[in-house]
Design a protein around this nucleic acid. Structure first.
Lengths: 126, 126
DNA sequence: CATTCATATTCATCATATTGAATGTTATCT
DNA sequence: AGATAACATTCAATATGATGAATATGAATG
């Protein structure tokens, strides 16, 4: 990991903690986690909500999975992602509290074209 | 910042939060913050405690300063660094709590050769 | 089994971060 | 002023991360 040098017995223990923060150090990944705060969501849902390309969302989800921040479950054609450990939101909330300005909430209903079962059943809950 | 592309109106607000996490995503910087948890410290102190080169410590301190995580105060030959906003430790502590194994504490007294006034007055408090 | 839908992965490219080495700066002391 | 102590900065090399485009996979359906 990293450039891996100038490290010391005293900084090494922080590698795993640093890795956790690195997983959180990307706006798209943070936005995805916020989507999942509401509950599990399929990839098409995340795509639509955030206005990102499918492959891009999958890439970020892969990184979140590798960091063990999210897990997935397959159901028919869809893959539903969910938060592995809700304690991540305590980290996120404490960090948000440090920002000079509050972050806006996620969009309510983004004219979703998502066609997953859940969306068909409860289509963008007006 | 970043590669800056494939972003959206919905991920943009998370840029500043991501920047905060990026500042925390490095073992040496985390170790420095832990040193400063005990109170302000001069650069020579951090060097000695963590076994890192002086220039390297200064570089990391510069990044921490740019992220407004630490502030500094000059006193004679020494520059003392201190935590700007103690809420950072709430972020750190919540993140630590997510790790599978607990992190070891910082070294008590690393045979300090630090010669700053504070160390001369209270030399490595056995 | 071919097709389709939803999602995943790979690869190439470009951007950013890390690090070491060298050098610059500032305050103090003689 | 010159020397020195403590720190800071710059520069270049390398490593890592981000992104887009293309392609692959796996489950379901006809």
């Amino acid at each position: 990991m990293m450039n891996m040098n100038e490290n010391s017995a005293f900084t090494d223990p922080y590698d795993s903690l640093a890795a956790l923060f690195r997983a959180l150090s990307h706006p798209a990944r943070l936005a995805i986690l916020e989507v999942l705060r509401e509950g599990e969501a399929c990839v098409c849902h995340i795509e639509t909500l955030l206005g990102l390309r499918q492959a891009y969302v999958s890439q970020q989800l892969m990184l979140l999975r590798q960091s063990r921040l999210v897990s997935m479950r397959r159901q028919g054609w869809n893959v539903f992602y969910y938060i592995s450990d809700p304690r991540v939101f305590e980290v996120l909330d404490q960090a948000r509290a440090m920002l000079p300005a509050p972050l806006p909430p996620l969009p309510r209903t983004p004219a979703s074209q998502c066609t997953c079962p859940k969306c068909r059943i409860a289509p963008q809950m007006q």
